[in-house]
Design a binder for these strands. Structure first.
Lengths: 342, 342
DNA sequence: CTGTTAGCGCATTCAA
DNA sequence: TTGAATGCGCTAACAG
């Protein structure tokens, strides 16, 4: 049998309460006593039974998820995933409250973070925006011992506890290699459609994309990126015009959301006899259909469900002061073609 | 607060013990009483606290994993993943014993399954072989209420509780599309290296591969598959000879293990000025290097860690009579190129 | 500073 | 056929 608190207490010659104090780093224990207990703990190889501990504590984990009120399918998926996780909260002992913030508004986000902190949640997950006020808010929270996990979009140079999202420069590089090889050996121009290049994720993807294109596909010219602002109509217009304006355009990388408009534009182009090798992000009903119809050639995806579950696991672990299994928490860049659709 | 057994007992006007009997479908309860309790349960929306239940039971889950003693990197990974999971068994309340069986030996596997069942484990995971004795053994086990999960390789027409592995025909189709597009617009022949076509997984991959090749890349000719028997030296020899014999061979799909020998052969070919678009399976140190060196173009992968953890989660859920979250348990076909390596 | 004690939600003897 | 009592491993008042 694995050792219990009783065994530790006996071994150390103290009471249960003292063992508990030591284990939870609570004050009111002489240094000497603490040492005895700690020795007993690793002599017996004690590991605390978290389930039992939580039972005793009647513990539930109140988490706060701060999400942008964006309209695209991915954010909807993300929200869904959070709601679903919360639905299973009865048994997982988590209780998640979602806080909505306006998209792309750093000030509002910073405020929301601080406000969330007031409720003393067991942890906070946030779709970050790269900005100093946000960084500062996160610093305050972690300083107060509240675990913070960035979700989907990271916050560099902050001391967030964990980032639950993909490596975006790598996503851009992946897109470049696939696009380059698919169009090869044709020469021509490649369009890029972003949501907004003021968003960090999109920046990162774009730079990764350009890096590989420049290095390995010099015969392909990247057109200046279009900014569709995740707006369906705008994206459609931009892409249609670009296809028209560049008869030598043979490929397209859409690194943001706004697949609907993009798909419409590609259908138009196809009707006029133009076929573009196209790589887009985020698997949704629309992008899946586009893949099956051959309008998209590749979809790069981050699994919202995985990200949310990972964030929760990490938050729980941090709240309990446990280690996280890094390998299990790495969020992959999924590559989908029509043949490996889930 | 969520309702507890006490609330149910009070609501139904019976004792805790009776509630327990009803919940665990144990005998010795009058039909009428049972009904009262059941009504109380869904009136209050009771869901049992599994953690508390396990604590009370002092429950641990003794699982048996039956693995082939194969020498390839993937199987080693799989074994590692099981050992690692077992190491965390103290806190997960699992205790896994590994049973080794000779590779590709259906009789031995069937025997091992039956033997494992004697120990009355809480569940069994097995790398299946498609054969009737195996099917029969699985049927017996599940008939006795022991949950059985197939791992990596499924067992069709058996009543195993779950399959923790990838969709192999889809893997083959994926390889075909990528290979076809990468070599395009060249014409030529494509080599196929299998471990053994008597293994179900390999068969499935091969047929998926041929299906797409025939449908979409008629200008490419698939050579008769080579069988490397997961033997490094043999694989090397076969591939080298094939490259030599077919000057028009421009692509290669390796759908089994034996990457070492394959890589050596590709290096030789490269030294002689021959470059083949190559797609292989399973990410390992060797295949990763090959990817980085440009010897492999794509590696399709199944994550052994995910598969094992998934198998354990499912086994636990089945043992507890709980639902599994299907979406979380689907094992992906990971596509790796040099840019999205983990 | 340290120990005693009473639960957390559930399963399980042992009586009745 | 049912109920009362005890304990799983741990935490948290409340006393000393």
């Amino acid at each position: 049998m694995r050792p219990t608190v009783h065994d530790i207490a006996a071994e150390a010659g103290v009471s249960l309460a003292t063992v508990d104090r030591v284990m939870n780093a609570r004050p009111g224990v002489r240094e000497k006593t603490r040492l005895k207990v700690e020795q007993a703990i690793d002599k017996l190889g004690y590991v605390r039974d978290v389930a039992a501990a939580n039972l005793a504590k009647g513990r539930t984990y109140p988490f706060t998820f701060i999400l942008p009120c964006n309209e695209n399918a991915f954010m909807a998926d993300l929200r869904d995933a959070v709601l679903q996780a919360n639905a299973r909260g009865r048994v997982e002992r988590t209780q998640i409250s979602i806080v909505d913030v306006p998209a792309f508004d750093a000030e509002a986000l910073a405020e929301a973070l601080l406000a969330a902190g007031e409720g003393n949640p067991a942890g906070i997950a946030v779709v970050a925006i790269e900005a100093d006020p946000v960084r500062e808010a996160v610093r305050q929270l972690t300083g107060r011992g509240i675990p913070v996990v960035t979700l989907v979009s990271d916050l560099e140079d902050s001391n967030r506890d964990h980032y639950a999202g993909v490596d975006n420069p790598a996503a851009g590089r992946t897109a470049a290699t696939l696009l380059g090889r698919f169009v090869s050996p044709q020469k021509g121009t490649i369009g890029v459609l972003a949501g907004s290049l003021s968003v960090r994720d999109h920046q990162n993807r774009f730079s990764g994309f350009c890096e590989i294109m420049a290095a390995h596909f010099p015969e392909l010219t990247i057109l200046p990126p279009m900014e569709g602002r995740d707006d369906s109509a705008l994206a459609r217009k931009l892409v249609s015009e670009a296809v028209e304006a560049h008869p030598d355009m043979i490929g397209l990388y859409s690194l943001g959301a706004g697949n609907r408009g993009l798909i419409a534009a590609l259908e138009e182009a196809r009707a006029r006899g133009r076929e573009l090798v196209t790589i887009a992000h985020e698997l949704s009903d629309h992008s899946r259909e586009a893949l099956e119809a051959g309008l998209f050639d590749v979809v790069l995806n981050q699994d919202a469900g995985h990200e949310v579950r990972s964030a929760i696991r990490v938050l729980k672990a941090k709240a309990d002061g446990l280690e996280v299994i890094a390998a299990q928490e790495r969020i992959r860049i999924d590559i989908f073609i029509k043949d490996n659709l889930p």
